[in-house]
């Protein structure tokens, strides 16, 4: 018998736990030629801002060992133009999660205000973690007090699920996650990209025009997995895990670590059908291992770890 793949994020039910990550799938159009997007749990669209945003100058990409640095700088047509794209994607039956970005609280509010007028948006993913914009962005995501007040403000504006996207570029990600939970977030998603850089030895200059960029891809997976483990242990709201997932097995690792759903970013660039292969692969894994639903494996890796965790000193090391 086929396993039950449905998961819940707040009051939203997803038909399976797999979604493409924000910024890696446009507004869905680009990948529609490759498969039926309705087979996905959801589609998370590009970071959307109140006004159109030009983005950073090129060069915006640098390949690194098993990874990719990007400094796109939130290029997007602005919420009014994005609204049309979101509406047409939703009309095909796809569950659309809109990634909301901004430089100020007012920016975030404006985007939500506009999108609240339509049916198309199923949930908001609040990007408080973009490393590639000079003001706001990641700055919002590194101080738990600011996170708490931003989430409280946004909470009062929508009844739709609010997913807070966390930055890995912090000392204690669990603390930020708790702040989001306390302020009424329905879920958290992590990780956004890790701040990095590359230097061109022939020009003797940083390779990216923005100097720094965000690292993603297989290289970040162990870091992301550890953070998902920590955050899912620290909060009671659902966790959407991402960072370096490139196939079904990686996705299963995140579920076992405590993620209720997973997002796939850079791997789409390498394999345009990776998301759909992950959906099928998770289903196979469940059946082969005798599970009847995906929820049975969420956080399962923690079950046996309680007695293993911590040495006599309580410092977490054996």
């Amino acid at each position: 018998m086929a396993a039950d793949l449905t998961v819940k994020i707040g009051n939203l039910t997803l038909k399976n736990p797999v979604m493409p990550a924000s910024g890696c799938f446009g507004y869905g159009e680009e990948y529609a030629p490759f498969y039926d997007l309705n087979k996905l749990g959801a589609v998370v669209v590009k970071g959307t801002t109140a006004k159109p945003c030009l983005g950073n100058p090129p060069i915006r990409l640098a390949e690194t060992p098993a990874g990719l640095l990007n400094a796109i700088g939130l290029q997007n047509p602005g919420v009014e133009a994005a609204r049309e794209k979101i509406r047409s994607l939703a009309q095909t039956g796809v569950t659309v999660i809109v990634n909301v970005a901004g430089h100020s609280v007012e920016d975030y509010l404006k985007v939500i205000e506009v999108l609240e007028q339509d049916e198309g948006t199923a949930a908001y993913e609040i990007n408080i973690s973009c490393p590639n914009v000079s003001a706001g962005g990641m700055a919002f995501g590194t101080d738990p007090r600011i996170v708490e007040s931003l989430v409280k403000t946004l909470r009062s504006c929508t009844a739709k699920p609010l997913i807070i996207k966390l930055s890995p570029n912090v000392t204690d990600i669990a603390e930020i996650a708790r702040a989001a939970e306390n302020a009424g977030a329905d879920a958290v998603s992590l990780i956004n990209t890790l701040l990095g850089m590359a230097i061109d030895t022939s020009s003797r200059r940083p390779l990216l025009a923005n100097i720094t960029g965000g690292l993603s891809g297989p290289a970040v997976k162990p870091v992301a997995l550890r953070m998902v483990w920590q955050v899912s242990s620290a909060v009671n709201i659902p966790v959407i895990g991402m960072g370096g997932i490139s196939n079904a097995q990686d996705a299963v690792e995140f579920l076992l670590a405590g993620a209720d759903a997973v997002a796939i970013g850079a791997a789409n660039f390498v394999n345009p059908t990776v998301c759909i292969e992950a959906v099928d692969g998770i289903a196979d894994y469940l059946v082969k291992n005798g599970f009847s639903s995906v929820t049975e494996i969420i956080g399962l890796a923690k079950n046996t770890s309680a007695d293993k965790k911590g040495g006599a000193c309580g410092c977490g090391k054996k």
Partner: peptide, 17 residues
């Protein structure tokens, strides 16, 4: 020419001014 990731228009990485 530009450095590319997706090649299909999704990542916005390959832009030219």
């Amino acid at each position: 020419e530009a450095r590319m990731a997706c090649g299909v228009g999704a990542c916005l990485g390959c832009v030219v001014e």
